[in-house]
Every structure is written in C-alpha cells, then in structure tokens.
Design a binder for these strands. Sequence first.
DNA 1: AAGAAGCCCTGATAGC
DNA 2: TGCTATCAGGGCTTCT
Length: 280
Amino acid sequence: MPELPEVQTVCDGIKDFVIGARITNAKIINKKLRIEIPKSIEKLSGTEIQQVRRKAKYIILELNNDKLLVIHLGMSGRLTIDQNIIGDYYHKKSNSQKHDHLRISLDNGYTLTYNDTRKFGLIDLIDSREESSYKYFKHLGYEPLSENFTKQALEDICKARTKNIKATIMDASLIVGVGNIYACEALFRAGILPERPAKTLSSKELERLRQAIISTLEDAIKAGGSTIQDYANPNGEAGYFQHSFSVYDREDQECKICKNKILRVKDSGRSTYYCKKCQK
DNA sequence: AAGAAGCCCTGATAGC
DNA sequence: TGCTATCAGGGCTTCT
C-alpha cells in the first residue's frame, strides 16, 4: 500500500541506478494491470533515462526521446533493482517473479523490475508535452508538500464541503498522496475526528490539520530514507513507517497519549482508526 | 456538481 | 486437513 512517502522513497532509491543509464531491453512479461501496458514500451531500447521524479503517487521516468514512463504502484506494486550477471541475463533475487509485469535492462548492468500481485498499478508511456493534459494527471489536486498547499488552500477546499474530513483529505482531486494510513495518522496528530463534515472545521483546526498532514508525510519520508538502501539490496524491502503508527491498524490497542482503546469504524468501505478521547 | 457505491485483483486469514 | 467466504485498499467509473 504505497502512499506518497513510499513513492518518494522509491524514487529516491532508484535514482542512483537509473539516471544516465540507457535501456538495452524492455520486456513486458504480463501486460494486465489497471490499464494494459502499451507495447510501445518494448521499443525503448537505446533510450536514456534522464530524470526520476514523483507526481502525486506516480513515478515518472523522463526519457531522452521526449517521452515519460509513468508508473503507479497501486496497492501492491514494487519496483526493484537487480543486477544482471552477464549482459541481459537476468538474475532476480529480490522477490518472487510470479507477478512480474515489466523488466527493463540497463546498460550499467542493473535491471529494473515492476512486480504487482494485485494488478491495481499502472504503467504508461506518454509524450512529455501532454503531461498536463494526461488523463490521469489533469484532475489532480494540491501536492501537500508543495508551497501551494497553503492555509487558504485547505480552507477553500473545506469551506462548503459536506463530506467528512477524512474522505476530503483522501480525495486525490483535492489533495494528492494522502491514503488511508496517513489520513488516519494526520487526523490523530491534529486531534480531529475523522467523521466530521469538512465544513465544520474551524480555521484553527484546519491549520492544525494542514501542518499535521505535512509533518506526518515528512516524517514518513525521513523514515523511508533510512531504508533507501533496501531498495537497491536484492534481499531488501522498504516498508512503512509502521513502527511509529499512532492509530492505523491498532484497533483495541492503547492510545499512545491517553491509554484509551483505539477504535475502528468503517467509512465507505475503508477502515478508519482513531482515538475517541484525543480526537474531537 | 458532489458524493457515494461499485469494481478491479490476489493473498492472508477466519470459519466450517 | 482442506475447502470456501471475507477482507484489504487506490483510484477510476458509474450511479444517484
């Protein structure tokens, strides 16, 4: 379940291995994902990867042919770096090959593999000039870690909104990158009940929430940073900041602040964890 | 227009 | 033991 911090960690982790490298071979192993992997990806041999960046929860590889390789990890997607042994001979040690979908061999001896058991991810190849009009990008909301995500921005989002605050901050057309885990964590950190309609939050509460969203994501990125090595390590696996979750997946356990039991409720099919005493 | 529900998928787990 | 039912969840599509 990668969210923004995990996606950022993956971007940071693969950078050293792919930037400046040329693709020697791109092989689609299983095209079935959220959308079919376009065949055009197999014609990328000779192309250089110039930059790696994140947009919402998408990973973007900038190529030197004015194309962007767009990757979304969905629920269970993984990008791993393995070392080729001889030329294109592929020696994968990091995890099972069972759900491999795409394998990109590079001229520096490394192989980038996309693996996704649940097939909720996406891999696409688009023209760099169409980035802003791309179907999956054009409706994206604020980047929470950008300067655009101001106090005023969050107030405008919530001003007349009747749906609850948790669903609001998880809505990618409003704010990107905040999934179920970090929505629960940020609301706990801000001391706000998840089910409250967005428009009932005061200006002061919204500012507390904004700062909680930012700090929760930043802390998770910092924690992820210490596991960057693992992405390069064939045996490694970068995980969540899970040792420090305050409420997520802690039903019936003690609240770290007040010792009351953490509660779990279902909200539009998603589990929501919170502390009834610490969150108002 | 906004919000809620449905759907995609597999593996882990619970229930019989 | 081994089968079957349930659940998890991001994000798009469809319905209200």
